[in-house]
Write a protein that binds this DNA or RNA. Structure first.
Lengths: 126, 126
DNA sequence: CATCTCCCACTACATTTGTAGTTGCCACAT
DNA sequence: ATGTGGCAACTACAAATGTAGTGGGAGATG
């Protein structure tokens, strides 16, 4: 596995779009992201280039010869890495305080609480 | 309330030390952090200065006239802000997927699971 | 053929972050 | 008075990040 590259905030936005739907060309992505980000196309291109350098994206040519981008790393792997680093930085690496924090600071529906409890049960299963 | 300044990773290390025990002088902090960080005193001083600029720390003179540093923002507030931003970036702002993720990726003791369930129950007590 | 368009490769430039080094000032021991 | 040891202010400088601009080649168009 690629060791889950470091993905900055803006880059993360691009990655999400591609995890959601890929491959896409730079201009497709630009249009897709424009409403939320207001980024110029060159900005998106720069981010794409950097992500390719980092090994987070791969490229391929589409039928019409233009380049398309697609993830080279799984979202889940990046989420795990980011989560790990966050947990380390803010909670000294301990999962429980983190879970406590988010459990306390979120308003959850009864349904969600039920689900989470089930997952907690499983999590200690193995 | 101060709107919870943006605290970088290295800065966070310093903040933790001061949330843990304050006020402290630059050299005290340097000694305290040396084992873990290997930072030169000037490095610590730079971080302290930046944190003061950001409004995360305040200073005061101690009896012997040298400067001491102490938090100007509560840890809990910073944790909340960081957590919020992390949740936004990585989980699109949704608490449940975040909780699911960490619940699944952590090995918890039966005791911890019990505790967490209790907190979940309270969290929906609206 | 002369252009107009797209797309891509380069270049740009301010900020933030990590990690110090250099200088100046002041109280205290000679 | 003078050197010395701290402490504080200012300066340094490279990498990463956010956010573009510019120039050049390959097709589409008039």
């Amino acid at each position: 596995m690629t060791p889950a590259p470091d993905i900055s905030e803006s880059e993360w936005t691009v990655m999400e779009a591609l995890w959601d739907a890929s491959p896409q060309t730079a201009s497709e992505l630009t249009k897709l992201l424009r409403p939320t980000t207001k980024w110029a196309e060159n900005t998106v291109r720069t981010l794409l280039t950097r992500l390719v350098e980092k090994g987070a994206l791969k490229t391929a040519e589409n039928s019409s010869g233009t380049r398309t981008y697609l993830p080279a790393v799984k979202r889940e792997a990046c989420v795990r890495a980011e989560g790990e680093s966050f947990m380390q930085r803010v909670f000294g690496g301990a999962a429980k305080p983190l879970l406590v924090h988010f459990a306390q600071n979120s308003k959850l529906t009864a349904e969600e609480v039920r689900e989470l409890k089930k997952i907690l049960d499983q999590s200690l299963k193995s």
